[in-house]
């Protein structure tokens, strides 16, 4: 493991940016590990949550934003609920995903594609059209086998409509997306 020279590894603004975007005080974290202990997905993470918090304090931007863990977080809010220092950890995970996208550092591309497919569907119809979203996701990832076993069940139960439920004023939702992109 290479030795890290403290001032060099530090992207001084990174911690500030994360704190500002998440409205959280990360200096409060004293590394008790409660977030890691309670996180249902710790077993699947490449970096445990408490270590991500430590790396944030140290300003290790690249390593944090290119972690797989931030994409596997299910936003279950356990960490936020139990943090003894009242840090909204789940909100920080959100912010890290936002930043990773901007920096082009998405380590779990399929998760991103799923979410993009979902939002594309919302933008198009105003509501999510589950079959259309799945088709889009498969097109983006080539994962044609995704839940192929469930499709007949869901269709048979009448749980998947083959036509989207479009809202009347789709244009309003489309304008929300358009203005959001202008501002971003």
């Amino acid at each position: 493991m290479p030795t890290k020279t403290v001032p060099d590894r530090n992207d001084g603004n990174f911690l500030q940016e994360v704190q500002q975007a998440s409205e959280q005080n990360l200096t409060r974290c004293y590394q008790c590990g409660n977030c890691t202990a309670g996180c249902p997905l710790s077993f699947a993470y490449d970096i445990p949550v408490n270590k991500l918090m430590r790396m944030l304090q140290a300003g290790e931007k690249h390593a944090v934003l290119s972690s797989r863990a931030i994409w596997l977080c299910a936003s279950c809010e356990t960490c936020t609920t139990r943090c003894p220092n009242e840090i909204d950890v789940a909100r920080i995970m959100d912010v890290l995903r936002h930043m990773a996208r901007r920096e082009g550092l998405v380590a779990e591309a399929p998760v991103r594609h799923l979410w993009d497919a979902f939002l594309t569907s919302v933008e198009k119809h105003g509501r999510v059209f589950e079959v259309g979203m799945m088709a889009n996701f498969v097109k983006r990832t080539g994962r044609f086998w995704t839940d192929a076993d469930l499709a007949p069940v869901a269709l048979g139960k009448g749980k998947l409509g083959l036509r989207p439920h479009c809202i009347e004023h789709q244009d309003e939702v489309q304008r929300i997306f358009a203005r959001f992109r202008e501002q971003a």
Binding site: S75, R101, L114, F118, F180
Partner: peptide
């Protein structure tokens, strides 16, 4: 009437402003 999707996790995991705007309508 004519409610739209709240954006669910894909929206708040992509951007908090987008997520809030979809809800706000």
């Amino acid at each position: 009437p004519d409610w739209n999707c709240c954006g669910s996790t894909p929206a708040h995991a992509s951007d908090h402003l987008l997520s809030a705007s979809l809800v706000a309508r």
